[in-house]
Amino acid sequence: MEHVFIVNPISGKADASLYLVPQIIEQAKKCNISYRVEMTQAHRHAVQLAQAYAQAGDPVRLYACGGDGTLNEVLEGVLRSGNHEAEVASIPCGSGNDYVRNFGKPQDFLNLENQINGHAISVDLMRTQTGISAAICSVGIDAKVAYNIPKYRRIPLCGGTMAYNLSILENLCRPLGQKLRVEIDGKVFCDQFLIATICNGSYYGGGYCAAPKADLQDGVLEVVLVRKMSRLRIASVLAKYKAGAHIAEDGTVCPDLRDVLYCFHAQEVHIIPVDEKNTIVNIDGECGPAERLDAWVMPGAVRFVLPLPVYDSWTQNKQKGQTLFVH
Rank of each mutant, 00 (worst) to 15 (best):
I25V: 14
S17R: 14
V4R: 05
C263H: 08
L176T: 02
V253I: 15
V88D: 11
V21G: 02
I184N: 04
R36A: 15
Y53P: 08
L112C: 07
N317T: 13
A28P: 06
H265D: 07
N117A: 08
V123R: 12
Q178K: 04
G77W: 04
T279V: 14
I149P: 08
D108C: 06
P22D: 10
C199H: 02
A235H: 09
L62R: 07
A46C: 09
G118P: 11
G159P: 11
K187M: 11
V60H: 00
A120F: 06
C93W: 01
V226E: 05
L18F: 07
Q267G: 14
T315G: 00
V274H: 05
L172K: 03
C93V: 15
G201W: 01
H43N: 13
L306I: 13
A56C: 10
I33M: 02
A89Q: 08
G251R: 05
G94R: 02
Y35L: 07
R227H: 08
R231C: 05
L110G: 03
D250E: 12
P299F: 04
F193S: 01
P59C: 04
A245K: 14
D58A: 12
F5S: 09
A248W: 00
N165H: 10
G186Q: 06
A89N: 06
F189V: 06
G69R: 01
I198Q: 02
A16L: 07
G300A: 02
H246K: 09
L166W: 10
E268M: 10
I195A: 00
N171F: 00
G201V: 12
I234W: 01
C287S: 09
A135C: 14
I24P: 11
S167C: 07
R227N: 03
G244H: 04
G96W: 00
E26R: 15
S95M: 03
F325T: 14
D312S: 10
C173A: 06
V224Y: 01
Q107C: 09
G159Q: 10
Y262W: 11
D294F: 10
V7Y: 02
A143Q: 12
Q316Y: 07
V326F: 07
Y35I: 13
P289V: 03
I280D: 01
I10W: 01
T70F: 01
N282S: 13
K13G: 03
V100L: 01
L18V: 11
M162L: 15
H45S: 08
R101V: 12
D15Q: 08
P309C: 05
N117L: 14
S313R: 15
A52Y: 02
C199M: 04
E286M: 01
I10H: 08
L176I: 11
K151L: 07
Y152T: 10
L257W: 05
G205E: 03
H327T: 15
V4I: 15
T161Q: 12
D294R: 10
L216H: 03
N32E: 13
S95K: 04
